[in-house]
Simulated scan of single mutants.
Amino acid sequence: MSIGELRRQWRADWRANGSDWTRPGLRALAAYRFGVWRMTVQSPLLRAPLSMIYRWAFRYCRNVYGIELPYTAEVGQGVVIEHQGGIVIHGATRIGDRCIIRQNCTLGVRTVDRPDEAPVLMADVQLGAGAVILGRVTIGAGAAIGANAVVLADVPAGALAIGVPATIRLRRNATEAGQ
Rank of each mutant, 00 (worst) to 15 (best):
C105Q: 06
G76E: 08
N173D: 15
V150I: 14
Y60Q: 10
V41T: 12
G91E: 13
R47T: 08
L26V: 03
R62M: 10
A123S: 13
V151T: 09
W14H: 11
A57K: 02
L160N: 05
A149E: 11
V41N: 08
Q179S: 11
R15I: 13
W10T: 04
R171V: 03
N17D: 03
P115G: 09
R169L: 09
A166H: 13
G146A: 15
I101N: 02
R11M: 04
L45I: 15
G108M: 05
Y71M: 06
G78S: 06
V64N: 01
L26K: 02
R11G: 00
G76Q: 06
D124Y: 04
G91D: 10
Q9D: 14
P24W: 13
A157T: 02
G142T: 07
V164M: 05
V88T: 03
L50G: 14
I100D: 03
L121G: 01
I101H: 07
A16H: 03
G135P: 00
Q84D: 04
Y60L: 12
R62H: 10
G130E: 05
V125N: 01
R114S: 12
N148C: 13
A129C: 13
T138A: 07
R23G: 11
A161S: 12
G146L: 10
A153C: 13
G146F: 12
V75E: 04
T72H: 08
N17I: 00
R59L: 15
V150G: 05
S51D: 14
R23A: 10
R98S: 12
R62F: 08
A177H: 03
E68R: 05
V151C: 11
E68L: 03
V64D: 12
G130Q: 03
G140W: 07
Y65V: 04
I53W: 13
Y54L: 08
F34I: 03
G78C: 02
A16I: 07
I3H: 09
G78N: 06
A141W: 02
D124R: 06
Y60S: 11
G146P: 01
E82H: 08
A12F: 07
G18T: 02
A30W: 11
G25T: 04
R62S: 15
I81A: 09
R59Y: 14
R33Q: 05
D113G: 15
A131Y: 06
C61P: 01
H83K: 05
Y71G: 01
R27N: 04
P44Q: 10
Q126K: 09
I101W: 04
R62A: 15
T138N: 03
Q84V: 02
Q42V: 09
R169Y: 03
M39Y: 01
A28H: 05
R169P: 00
R47E: 14
A92W: 06
T40D: 13
I168Q: 03
I67H: 10
N63L: 15
D124L: 00
G35W: 13
G18C: 01
A28T: 06
R47V: 10
